[in-house]
Nucleic acid binder design. Sequence first.
RNA 1: GGGCGGUUAGCUCAGCUGGUUAGAGCACCUGCCUUACAAGCAGGGGGUCGCAGGUUCGAGUCCUGCACCGCCCA
Length: 879
Amino acid sequence: MQPVDVSALPRRFEPEEAEPRWRALWDAWGIHSYDPARPREETFIVDTPPPTASGSLHVGHVFSYTHQDLIVRYQRMRGRNIFYPMGWDDNGLPTERRVQNVFNVRSDPFMPYEPDLKVERVDPNTKPRDLPRPTVISRRNFIDLCHIVTAEDEVAFKDLWKMLGLSVDWNEEYATIDDRSRGIAQLSFLDLYEKGHIYQVEAPTMWDIDFATAVAQAEVEDRERDGAFHDIEFGTEDGGNFVISTTRPELLAACVGIAAHPDDERYRALFGKKAISPVYRVPVPIFPTELADPEKGTGVLMVCTFGDQTDVQWWREESLPLRQVLGRDGLIVEHRYGAEGWESNDPDLANANYAEIVGKRVNQARRIVVEQLREASNSALEDGGAPLKGEPRPLKHAVRFYEKGDSPLEYLTNRQWFVRLLDKKDELIERGRQITWHPAYMGKRYEDWTATLGLDWGISRQRYFGVQIPAWYRLDDQGNPDYSDPILPTRDLLPMDPMSSTAPGFEESQRGQPGGFAGEPDVFDTWFTSSLSPQIGARWDQDGDKMDELFPMDVRPQAHDIIRTWAFYTIAKAHLHHDDVPWHNVVLSGWILDPDRKKMSKSRGNVVTPVGMLEEYGADAVRYWAGSARLGADTAFDEQVFRVGKRLVTKIYNAGKFVLSQEGPEGEITNELDRAFIAELRSLVERTTAAFEEYEYSRALEETETFFWSAFTDNYLELVKKRTRAEDDPQGRASAIATLRTGLSVTMRLFAPFVPTITDEVWSWTFAEQTGVQSIHVADWPSAEEFTGIPAPDNTESFAVACDAIAAVRKAKTELGLGMGRPLATLAFQGDADSLPVLSRVITDVSDGANTAATSVTEGDTGGERFTATIVAELQEEK
RNA sequence: GGGCGGUUAGCUCAGCUGGUUAGAGCACCUGCCUUACAAGCAGGGGGUCGCAGGUUCGAGUCCUGCACCGCCCA
């Protein structure tokens, strides 16, 4: 074989030149493409996470997407036909919020569409308080802007993925707002509806007043907030009184009951009677409940529609009336005391007080109500004192927020669609157990979440940029919709928008007319669509349906914080639609923490931009960093590791040049040291393959790196350097060169998933032509069978003994301040009786490595080491 | 308050089913231009493995409790 002409290669490897060149070649060769003709058992299928397109590019993305690519590249070299798509999750609130910020606009669904509307971008440096009032635009204009923004964001992500060298099949690209995804999400809805898993109900739901939308349990987070207990005196119908404590005095008008613990002696006598509220003088029932905590506040509390989740429960269990005072926009709505459902013992007083808070926000209303409570005239009793007892007592308490919102969640009653899951907890837990979780303890998180689920999955959102719920409603003579019997489209009409397409059996002119029809205005929760990523990838019930070939998938890579959402909903969908698991494995990446072990986030200002990182160190070095972190483990961001990765790339380049530039005769691997080295190499292959099979890529990297740097370049290569040029030993020379090439070929392939550019560069110099395989990334992963023709060493310790012997020489040279290449006049080994016979088998290579012709070996005390060396340097002329 | 994970060298991390003197890289010190690589090579110093008990011939590893950090949930 022709050696590589080293002088023709650049002295240094330049990633910024090589990486784009190799990416173009991989694309041209199509080595990342899925081949639909090959059978399932040869295929490896990835359920790639679709990143939130309007989210910021983050080092965390680079980290976790590299992890999945490592697994994919390993499987590709194992000969698997890879299905590795990429989607963009672009519908939903993050996009809407970005559009609002980028263009300073708000949407009003009642505004007419303006086809030629031009909206200017806001200077991103403008402070929020300096911005003019947002421009109000129609819903359709707003959606147009969403498409513009997401298209830009997707390009940014795609560029990043390409820079990083992800081996994604770009033929399999989709967006969760495109027609394929919309059609499949709507099909999912129809299928679940037909199977009886979906219902809609007028029910209290958690509501974000700023976004004006319902939110699901999974989107809620608790935040610690300042609040205050207000002690308020109520009356009783027989002239008595008691004091309740509440943090929400503004909801006094929504009070529908009074509750205390059944064993609480203080209030036992009140159960069954009516209480009279102050300010409005509304009679409400007093009832016992185990859920009341006698230690909290005064032990007796007011039940409102609705202050929190337990209010909802009491409202249901006690069949209490509904008195909703808060509107969808978070403002207090109007109503009249004295009317049905708003009975009062003094309607005039009630109306006068209530009128003061109508149209106010929650905080304003609270202040007004507290002032009203200070007035004796507002007592529940004709001759009582001020209902507010003492001053409000401050406290810290957990308040529920929508995770993307800034105002506390309220509970409002409105019509929402739900997927029934609470009756399927056991089945869903069992499904989770049919999946292998990496690391295994993550499966417990899934089970805990599923077991503690408290609400069905609310899937409707009152948003604009999302997948429309495919339903119409008949309107009665008054124009009121009949929600009990929705009209659903047939499957051939999907994807569709009920707000623009006409319900079957009606004319478009009947939209919104009495006796006509109305479209469902709501869209799906974004998880409703993204939980179908396997079905979208496999094109469920669409042209080119490959569900039979691609479902269930092999692996779902994702972050551990979305086990309760993405993993959970995907498992639920697969269970309900297909009675199966969506995939056989889940691999969970950890998080990137900043050096202070805090989660990196935009708000902390500690985010490192991934593009700058890739430009500075190169993709191979960045991938090295990601590959050195185990699955599931949170990792502190450490720029030192990039430098280590970059050095590895340089080392590979130089070692590759050296090995492949050796000229010599072709030949068998015969020498003892060479056979012993091959035995070590074979063991490395077995260990790294086993590690990858368990998704433990970081162990594979560590083993390969240690072997390459220490065993291969520092030891084997130095031991045989002289022999590769030995004119008088053609057979030994051929053996050394063959071993070097085998060692390089194998380690390059073991490194290939981690550092794809440099390894393919080295591969291209001779191995590509030799094997007929263009790219290392479609070459065979090394296996033990490759070494079957090479005889085992006479002694399994030969390689270790040779390394220890040369180490003893180096130590002696260092102690004398000599350079490693300094020729020795004499070299004398002392060693233990067991090791000396082994040393004799490799003594020629050791002597060559030490650069001496005169080596002696004696048994002697070595002070715990295998060998010690005594050396005399050859005299050197002064330079 | 519950669940899960973590705590090993100055820093970032390995250490798989308990078994010689606890490892690596970075950083630090010393020496070396050696025909692939000074972005390199060689040698060296540095750890009572969070704390307290327990099981065992033997514990970084298993058990109990505690402390601190993180995530998820209530």
